[in-house]
Design a protein around this nucleic acid. Structure first.
Ligand SMILES: [Mn+2]
Ligand SMILES: [Mn+2]
Ligand SMILES: [Mn+2]
Ligand SMILES: [Mn+2]
Lengths: 238, 238
DNA sequence: TAAAATATTTAGACATCTCTAATTTTAAAA
DNA sequence: TTTTAAAATTAGAGATGTCTAAATATTTTA
């Protein structure tokens, strides 16, 4: 295993008889953001959407998108938005894999709560070591989901897409299990904690207000009224 | 807890009623390098020594040293070398604490060998999270030494300086316990592994060759001849 | 479909960290 | 003590990633 250095983010490492290129922290964060915005692949991800997601300016996004395009990580046509290429998708999935494995580690081993892990995982996901991640995966006993219910891609980037529905899409009388959250902000997660709403619990829609979509739900032995701000961010498996 | 951002490395976080400034990856690595070179504090650390340690050019070192001086992390007078200030020392020790805790984690929990941990810890040491480190410390049961026998500073930066001697400084007939290694390169560590030389083992100097300083040592039930390249990099506690 | 509003890109600049080449200072040798 | 060698600094520039302001393209609305 030999290495060639040309600045810190052009490190190229010979791994398993193929060249695996390393990307900068910025590049990795962009790829991940594009992946997350790319759920509905009819149109490319827009510059402004990416700027919002990355907390930066549209002009910075244009610059970076050009750079990613030069590296064949995205497909980009001026004014037409951006898509991940196959290689960009693979890279994004590896970063997401690392992010979610670290989140599991923080919660399972270091007593972090699910609202504390995201920020730290945002940094840990960029550590460069194949062995670190495969060993971490083994240490955690190959978890399939992160603390927020999101699937963890395996070393090949494969993962199960759960068939889940937003609570807000359920009708009166329907019930299921809470399997994930859409909004993973500390604010939302703390709200859920405060109201004893957790992964794995059974939820039934007792009543649904047509006017504003708010619901009266039965969650285990607790009855609770919740707004659409809440129901539109909870995933249910029926 | 509120945050103010001005570029990624000017993040200032209000922690425990005092301002704790965050430093860039480069700044942190420089501080650590100065600390390690600063063992004999008669003269300041020279520009060239730092350049060698940091694998960079002397002119780059001069630039960075000025920057660190502006931030009061080092005391620097042109052509006179550089010293860590109290605040620089504290910062360096916190990074070293993180580095060594991660090394313990990698060996104890993820089955890394002692020659594999340094490179990864070099990245992990820069993750910004007080909680991460205090929880990691707890998870590892507050280890006092890293896999190479080096002391781990506590949260206040305090650590025990072991009274240890280089094996090369022992005379014929003297013996003691292997408590540390000076050279932590994978090459040296693999040499030690290959010859069953490990921390905690008892070593006795059976014979010492005056001509080249090489020794015949008895290590547990094994007899071995070693050069000064080896003996000058092994720490013994008598 | 033309005007207005919005989205995106370009131009030019700045901060950080790095480099090479030239200059200056200090240390060593004659 | 002068000369020479080594060490350190300065000058100038490049790469990366960011920003503001101006220009251009696209979409929406009238
Ligand atoms: Mn990140
Ligand atoms: Mn998550
Ligand atoms: Mn480092
Ligand atoms: Mn170590």
């Amino acid at each position: 295993m030999s290495k060639y250095f040309t600045r810190i983010n052009l490190i190229v490492t010979f791994v398993r008889s193929k060249f695996m290129v390393m990307f900068s922290l910025s590049e990795e964060n962009y790829l991940k953001a594009i992946f997350h915005l790319q759920t509905h692949p009819k149109a490319g991800v827009s510059t402004n959407a990416l700027a919002e997601e990355m907390q930066t300016k549209a002009s910075s996004v244009t610059d970076m998108v050009k750079k990613l395009s030069d590296k064949n990580l995205v497909i980009y046509k001026k004014y037409q938005g951006v898509y991940l290429s196959e290689s960009g998708r693979e890279t994004a999935l590896q970063i997401i894999r690392k992010h979610r494995l670290w989140e599991v580690f923080l919660v399972e081993k270091l007593d972090f709560t699910w609202d504390e892990v995201h920020e730290v995982a945002e940094e840990l996901e960029h550590i460069k070591s194949e062995k670190l991640i495969s060993e971490l995966d083994k240490f955690l006993d190959y978890p399939k989901r992160d603390p927020h219910g999101d699937p963890i891609p395996d070393a090949q980037g494969d993962f199960q897409v759960a068939n889940k529905t937003l609570l807000s899409d359920l009708s009166k009388g329907e019930k299921g299990t809470l399997v994930g959250v859409k909004d993973t902000s500390p604010e939302f997660l703390k709200y859920l904690d405060k109201n004893d709403i957790a992964l794995g619990k059974t939820i039934e829609v007792v009543d649904k207000e047509e006017f504003d979509g708010s619901m009266l739900i039965q969650i285990e032995d607790q009855s609770l009224r919740v707004s659409t701000m809440v129901t539109a961010n909870i995933f249910i498996k029926i």
